[in-house]
């Protein structure tokens, strides 16, 4: 964008024409020594400036309203009253994701905690029976002991078939508990689409606000806000493409050992 274009941006052609005409008249009257006329012209100039400013602000306000309506957060319209706002909906949706993933994690852990002792008991009994069985093969077993082993193997086979059924059942329930992925995936995709839409609308708001600033000559001092590393910033996305972030436990270990850990 050239300087000229930048200066003219947001101004009507009518206004710029009038400005050009009045400045040359102003120069003429100053040259001719007609200061009364010159002062009148300066007043008129500032009036033109004010008027164009008002007009521009008016136009921007209308665009602003338009942009806000695009956010669909206007509860006065009957349609929107039902939905109230996509934003509330989005945060509801995300809470739903948190709830679903939490449920799935807990359900999975319940089943795992139920299965682990079963697997342990199976292993313990299998190990004990194997040792007994080997004693039998080495002919180190008394007949009375053998009779006991006989009964024990019987019990083991019975519990083995029922326990492995329960284990299989638990595993398949763990499998089913992962069905949240499908639902939460859809919800997150919808929210992502909304975020993109909001981003686009925000961008046009920023451009509009920039025009207002240009017209009024406002300069903002915006302090850069940094995330507080002390409070914690959460998981890093695209960690492998960033220098300031470790890419895994090996990286952490290397860093700590370089510090003498």
């Amino acid at each position: 964008m050239s300087d000229n274009e930048r200066i003219q941006q947001g101004l009507d052609q009518e206004v710029t024409a009038k400005l050009a005409q009045q400045t040359s008249e102003l120069a003429d009257s100053v040259n001719a020594g007609d200061y009364v006329r010159a002062m009148t012209l300066i007043n008129e100039l500032s009036e033109v400036r004010d008027q164009s400013l008002y007009r521009e602000v008016g136009r921007l306000t209308r665009s602003l309203h338009e942009a806000i309506r695009n956010f669909q957060i206007d509860p006065t319209s009957a349609e929107q009253k039902e939905v109230l706002s996509k934003m509330t909906d989005a945060s509801d949706r995300l809470s739903y994701v948190v709830q679903m993933t939490g449920q799935a994690a807990n359900r999975t852990m319940d089943l795992v905690e139920e299965s682990m002792p079963m697997a342990h008991a199976m292993r313990d009994e299998a190990v004990a029976l194997r040792d007994e069985w080997q004693r039998l093969r080495r002919r180190e077993m008394e007949p009375a002991e053998f009779r006991e082993l006989y009964g024990r193997i019987d019990t083991f086979f019975n519990s083995l078939s029922s326990d492995s059924d329960s284990l299989y059942q638990n595993l398949s329930e763990i499998l089913i508990a992962q069905d949240f992925q499908d639902l939460t995936g859809q919800v997150i995709q919808k929210v992502t689409a909304l975020v993109n839409e909001v981003e686009d609308n925000l961008l046009s708001l920023v451009v509009m606000a920039g025009n207002v600033d240009q017209l009024t000559g406002t300069v903002h001092q915006i302090e850069e806000k940094e995330e507080s590393a002390e409070k914690g910033v959460g998981p890093q996305i695209n960690a492998d493409r960033r220098e300031d972030v470790v890419s895994g436990q090996d990286d952490v270990d290397d860093l700590l050992s370089s510090l003498g850990f």
């Binding site: 590393a229 002390e230 914690g232 959460g234 300031d244 890419s247 952490v252 860093l255």
Partner: peptide, 26 residues
């Protein structure tokens, strides 16, 4: 045991006297 993975943070934790640092997922 944390998802915080910035090098600065790990150094800060070490300086503050942490005994071990495990980054999630682990």
């Amino acid at each position: 045991v944390t998802a915080e993975a910035k090098r600065d943070q790990i150094v800060a934790a070490a300086q503050a006297g942490v005994n071990g640092y495990v980054v999630k997922p682990f």
